[in-house]
Design a protein around this nucleic acid. Structure first.
Lengths: 230, 230
DNA sequence: CAAATAGTGTCTTTGAGACATTATCCG
DNA sequence: CGGATAATGTCTCAAAGACACTATTTG
């Protein structure tokens, strides 16, 4: 940290959000269609400028709630990385702190204040789009972070409501990793990982087939041993 | 990303560095003593303002070389996290991207352009200091990142020269994790992890005791299975 | 030959992966 | 009672952890 003088250049600081959820069993990300230049008409991650007296994570929460209507505890939010290449925004020097958000069954969205349109995309499709700015890299980093954190943290529980079934939890791992898992090995693994999930004693009836037992989080944030994807 | 107007507030952007190495077998971090207000006389992480046309990581490399005289490939550098609470710098709104640097036997340093003094601290001692700004949190995050990355990446090899001995590598894990490891289990684990290390065929003689075989990196960046600390 | 350091093998336990059938409900 | 979904047990193999002695060098 060198001595402060007014010679140091000013930057704009934004937050960008990689908001992930499961929609009807599919791993999905929220994108907005840009309604203004630059990149007008291109899909982008939701985000916006940080306010003068606002912490970065507060700005991320604010943008998250503006875009999805969901806030606070209902959604997991963590910092992903910060992107600051000169020229990443053609207008001026903008440094963006990217955040990863994960929630269960986040609501449908349409349009928004300044976005032409907004909607959930299957992650695989979104990765194939020509996104605005450097948002493709940010999206890739966010998806990889989520995939990786399924292994050694309880992040999978954020994709699912407070009470959930074993097949639903297995579905999270399968959708996010894009792999099929054996239900016997999966249940054994989840059950034996101390503090991961707990039986509620209740069942979910009403669907076809045998009722599923409802589980809930048991508090551990770190999974020992981890769930391995290989 | 909302429409751009000149109403958005300007920020200063800095990089701060958590530079870690092993000095005589001890896990150490480089700190500088501040020579100017604010926090004059307090120890801080090295760092500085990002230039107008400079990427964040380039700024981190520049500061790293200014502080240690070491640059380029010799040192591992990765982004840690970004800290932007209002008031974290009492002068103005400063957002800092923190980077983690790891190198083998980094050189002794004394003083510097704007720092009153600079020296290597054992990490445990540094964590007990009353550091400037929010640098204690940044240091904690950097140390935890390094500890964690020893598990599942080849980061341990960055603490050691290109050719090294098995006991030296074990010493990295022991110093960074602060634990003692069994040399038989350690050697078996390292040897059986595909692509982690390879024999060079050479030995290091000249010390007391049996000469040690020299190893080198075998290319894998990810360790499968990981080294576990528990 | 003593002191220092490097290097190694076995046993036991735990978890991972492969694999198919039974249980319960609804219509 | 047929279709749909949930739940579960065993065997084999791989890796982890505990544990102590031998090998090679220098002074």
């Amino acid at each position: 940290m060198v001595a402060y003088t007014s010679e140091h250049p000013p930057f704009f600081v934004t937050v960008d959000l990689v908001i992930l959820t499961l929609r009807e069993g599919t791993f999905a990300v929220l994108l907005v269609e840009r309604g203004a230049e630059p990149f007008r008409g291109r899909w982008a991650l939701p985000g916006g400028f940080v306010h003068v007296d606002e912490d970065l994570m507060d700005a991320a929460y604010r943008e998250l709630e503006e875009e999805t209507g969901v806030g606070g505890d209902a959604v997991h939010l963590e910092q992903l990385a910060t992107y600051g290449a000169p020229g990443r925004d053609p207008r001026s020097r903008v440094v963006s702190a990217a955040y990863l958000a994960v929630g269960a069954d986040l609501p449908e969205v349409r349009g928004g204040s300044d976005a032409a349109d907004a909607r959930w995309w299957p992650v695989e499709e979104a990765l194939g789009l020509d996104l605005a700015f450097d948002h493709r890299v940010i999206l890739e980093d966010g998806v990889e972070r989520a995939r990786s954190k399924l292994e050694y943290t309880d992040l999978a529980l954020r994709f699912v409501p407070a009470r959930f079934t074993m097949p639903a939890l297995q579905g999270v791992y399968e959708a996010v990793w894009g792999t099929a898992l054996d239900p016997r090995n999966f249940a054994r693994k989840v059950t034996r990982t101390q503090g991961f999930v707990r039986e509620t004693g209740e069942e979910r009836r009403g669907g076809r087939g045998r009722p599923a037992r409802l589980l809930e989080a048991a508090g551990a944030e770190t999974l020992l041993p981890p769930m391995m994807r290989d």
